[in-house]
Computed example of a mutant assay.
Amino acid sequence: MKFIVQWKGLPTAQQSAIERFMKTGGALPPDGITMLGRWHAIGELSGCAIVEADSTAPLAAWVLQFGDIFTFTISPAVTDDELGKALAAFQAGR
């Protein structure tokens, strides 16, 4: 299943975030998560990633590693094709 992972940090966490990113290279996700892409906002301590995981357990473990710097929002995601199929099934059931 795909997930949208969004993060936001307070300006007071900027130095800690920079140091951790430079030390870890952005810390790739743990086993059980495939990162499909990651983007960072310019001028903000925020960004998002699209990841794939069969379980939410590795997602929880991953974000806990950065919980002292960022707050996270994680939402299930579907592709246009997946959404189209769900909408067609919904319309057929009306």
Score class of each variant (00 low, 15 high):
residue 2 K to E: 09
residue 2 K to D: 09
residue 4 I to S: 12
residue 5 V to M: 13
residue 5 V to Y: 05
residue 7 W to Q: 02
residue 8 K to P: 01
residue 8 K to M: 10
residue 9 G to A: 12
residue 10 L to N: 14
residue 11 P to V: 12
residue 12 T to R: 05
residue 12 T to I: 08
residue 12 T to Y: 00
residue 15 Q to D: 07
residue 15 Q to G: 00
residue 15 Q to L: 03
residue 16 S to Y: 01
residue 16 S to I: 03
residue 17 A to F: 05
residue 18 I to Q: 08
residue 19 E to V: 03
residue 20 R to H: 05
residue 21 F to S: 02
residue 21 F to K: 01
residue 23 K to L: 07
residue 23 K to F: 04
residue 23 K to R: 13
residue 23 K to N: 07
residue 26 G to L: 11
residue 26 G to Y: 10
residue 27 A to R: 15
residue 28 L to G: 15
residue 29 P to M: 06
residue 30 P to Q: 01
residue 30 P to D: 03
residue 31 D to M: 11
residue 32 G to R: 04
residue 32 G to M: 07
residue 33 I to V: 10
residue 33 I to N: 02
residue 34 T to R: 10
residue 34 T to Y: 01
residue 34 T to I: 04
residue 35 M to R: 09
residue 36 L to F: 07
residue 36 L to K: 12
residue 36 L to E: 14
residue 37 G to K: 12
residue 37 G to Y: 09
residue 38 R to E: 09
residue 38 R to G: 08
residue 39 W to P: 06
residue 39 W to D: 04
residue 39 W to R: 05
residue 41 A to M: 03
residue 41 A to R: 01
residue 41 A to Y: 05
residue 42 I to R: 09
residue 42 I to L: 11
residue 43 G to V: 08
residue 43 G to C: 09
residue 44 E to G: 03
residue 45 L to R: 01
residue 45 L to P: 02
residue 47 G to W: 03
residue 49 A to Q: 04
residue 49 A to V: 01
residue 49 A to R: 01
residue 50 I to K: 09
residue 51 V to G: 02
residue 51 V to E: 04
residue 51 V to I: 15
residue 51 V to M: 06
residue 52 E to D: 08
residue 52 E to H: 06
residue 53 A to Q: 03
residue 53 A to F: 00
residue 53 A to P: 04
residue 53 A to V: 02
residue 54 D to F: 00
residue 55 S to L: 02
residue 55 S to P: 00
residue 56 T to P: 02
residue 57 A to K: 11
residue 57 A to F: 09
residue 58 P to K: 01
residue 59 L to M: 11
residue 59 L to E: 03
residue 62 W to T: 04
residue 62 W to D: 07
residue 63 V to A: 05
residue 64 L to M: 14
residue 64 L to R: 13
residue 65 Q to V: 10
residue 66 F to Q: 14
residue 66 F to V: 00
residue 66 F to A: 14
residue 67 G to K: 12
residue 68 D to C: 11
residue 72 F to G: 11
residue 73 T to Q: 14
residue 73 T to S: 14
residue 73 T to E: 14
residue 73 T to M: 12
residue 74 I to Q: 06
residue 74 I to N: 07
residue 75 S to I: 15
residue 76 P to H: 03
residue 76 P to V: 08
residue 77 A to S: 10
residue 77 A to H: 00
residue 78 V to M: 14
residue 79 T to M: 01
residue 79 T to G: 04
residue 81 D to L: 07
residue 81 D to H: 12
residue 82 E to A: 14
residue 83 L to P: 00
residue 84 G to A: 15
residue 85 K to V: 06
residue 85 K to S: 11
residue 88 A to R: 13
residue 89 A to V: 10
residue 89 A to W: 10
residue 89 A to G: 14
residue 90 F to E: 09
residue 91 Q to C: 08
residue 92 A to Y: 00
residue 92 A to G: 01
residue 93 G to L: 05
residue 93 G to A: 11
residue 94 R to A: 13
